[in-house]
Simulated assay, not measured.
Amino acid sequence: MTAPWPYPLWIAHRGAGKLAPENTLAAFRVGAGHGYRAFECDVKLSADGVPFLLHDTTLQRTTDGHGVAGQQPWSELSRLDAGSWHSRAYAGEPIARFDAVARYCLRNGFALNIEIKPSPGTEDETGRAVAREAARLWADAAMLPLLSSFQPAVIAAARAAAPQLPRALLFEGLRDGWLDEARALDCVAVVVDHPSLDAALIAHVHAAGMRALTYTVNDPAPAHALLAAGIDGIVTDAVDRFSPGSAVQG
């Protein structure tokens, strides 16, 4: 029997990471403007231990910086432009600190799926630090954030640091023993790429007492199929195509 699930079905990927610069507060505001009340983001550590939002290991795709992001102190990262790469309208948008995003979500009653995204070689440190910071920030919240990672070692470190926070293991493709891995880490959910999921697998996850979430669904046909199969959460870039408060469009 699965426990009650507090999170909205529709989850905006990296804020609204196609319509605005991904993983920035601007992207969260755009997603909220489209009615989304649940968001996914990527969090890693600066060289001096400050959690911040960035997907890639390196800076150059989504900022005007270069090199490995986790090797730079927050004082340097905070000065980078994380918006111009997307469009002129967002020129000067800064990299978002994790605590700023947390405050935004808490004050608006939004749910957050935190993908812990360590720089190479910092898996344990990042898992522990992000989990501890999340536990501190959400200490008095009614709805806790969901921690997730593709790396079991990261989830293990997060569980050791903040066992009270719910956890999910991410998968791209399904390897042997995938569900046992999630169960061994006391995960409440698995998050699987949508081509790997079908109704039988979703039912199997539910029978194991966990929830099934999926990414990144941007077209109506797979969304319809997953909804019919009983999916518990859909991560999407298409926040302007899917209305979180109504049936799938298109």
Rank of each mutant, 00 (worst) to 15 (best):
L112Y: 09
P220E: 12
L59K: 00
A111G: 07
R167G: 15
R175C: 10
W74I: 10
E133N: 07
A203T: 09
Q72H: 11
D81F: 03
T236E: 03
Q151L: 14
K117V: 07
L197N: 11
G35F: 06
L144R: 15
P120C: 04
E181C: 14
N218V: 05
P244C: 13
P163D: 14
D237G: 06
G17L: 12
E22S: 04
F52E: 00
D232T: 03
V205L: 03
A82S: 00
A135N: 08
G31P: 08
P145G: 02
L170T: 06
T126K: 09
T2N: 12
S149W: 04
L227W: 04
D48T: 07
A89L: 10
E22K: 04
S87V: 06
A158F: 03
A32H: 15
T2P: 13
D198F: 10
A157G: 01
Y215R: 05
G17D: 11
A238Q: 14
G65M: 00
W85R: 02
L54V: 09
S196K: 02
A82F: 00
W85K: 01
L77C: 00
Q249C: 13
V43F: 01
T58E: 04
H224C: 10
D176L: 14
A135G: 12
R128V: 14
L185F: 02
S196G: 06
S46Q: 01
F98S: 02
V50H: 05
A96R: 05
A20D: 11
E181Q: 15
L144D: 08
A153S: 14
D42P: 03
P152T: 05
A158S: 05
W85N: 03
S149Y: 04
A100N: 10
V30T: 14
T236Y: 00
A27H: 09
H34K: 13
H55Q: 06
T236H: 01
I234E: 02
H204C: 11
R183K: 15
G177V: 06
V68W: 10
A153K: 08
V190S: 04
A199L: 02
G173R: 09
T2H: 12
F28D: 06
K44F: 06
D186E: 15
W5V: 11
